[in-house]
Amino acid sequence: MTANTTTPATTAYHDPLARRRLIQTIFGRILIYALLLFGAALILIPFFWMVSTSLKTEDQLFVWPPKWLPDPVAFENYFDSWKQLDSIAPGLTFWRIMGNTLFITVLAMFGEMFSAAIVAYGFARFRFKGRDTIFFIMLSTMMIPATLTMVPGFLVWREFGLLNTYDPLTLPALTAWGPAYIFLLRQFFLTIPRDMDDAATVDGANTVQIFFYIMLPMVKPAFLAIGVLAFQGNWNNLQAPLIYLNTTQFFTLILSMQFFQQSLSKSAPKWHYMMAMATMMAAPILLMFFTAQRYFIEGLNVGAVKG
């Protein structure tokens, strides 16, 4: 039949009804892209403004109307903000703060990854009495606000004599801190066929070997996804460091930003320095996002599709 071989375009040319439909589709497409571009502008302009401000000199900040591009470009903002912090709080230098932040973030991240994997493995692959009840309790702990444990948590760590150390920020991670991570990994462990364990057991592997050589490699996407989420979560955490750290040399990046805003920037906001610090804080996370985007999205989607 000839009708089947003609392309939609030629049909549209001959048939006025189809032609109208084609025009409608084209308009629809244009509208969709216009809306998407509008949304993109809403997202990108603030980003651009952050980086642009971070490169301006002080007298360019309050120019009216605002200038989009910095001229001259002041890269020194990125160093001067730290010099200023160092001058009011000796020892609060870029390298020290970076070291503190990475130390806390990396220890807490590995702690959360491995402990969550072990606990999730226990929940997913073994039957025991009360398992489902405990799992339900675990999920309910997600509702307990951080506010409730803030005051007594502080008192407990004070009792241990570990205030103003990195312990309260890293050690709890070893006890499978995040219910969401356990849930995510459990969903992945559940999809692995039971034959895998059985075959390995027949071959003489013990539980530890099965876990590290068979199970963990099979849930690698979820394992890395919680790694990414845990890194991001600890990097961005303000509440805990704010409570537990009070010597400026011990500060994390986010805490030094808050300190800067509360001290040097209090009466007259130094936007160029604050934007430079915001950019510095965002840069590693954005870099990680662009290189490991898949894992960010993996972590997000599990809840949506399987929850």
């Binding site: 606990v119 073994f126 025991f128 409730l148 444990t149 007594p152 006890t175 499978a176």
Partner: peptide, 27 residues
């Protein structure tokens, strides 16, 4: 099987007793 499963979740149980349940009662 039951022994392995339960023992694997003990880090979580210990953590929640010391770092969640006790602080909540204290609070």
């Amino acid at each position: 099987e039951a022994a392995t499963g339960f023992s694997l979740i003990t880090p979580w149980i210990a953590g929640r007793i010391v770092l969640t349940a006790f602080p909540i009662l204290l609070s």
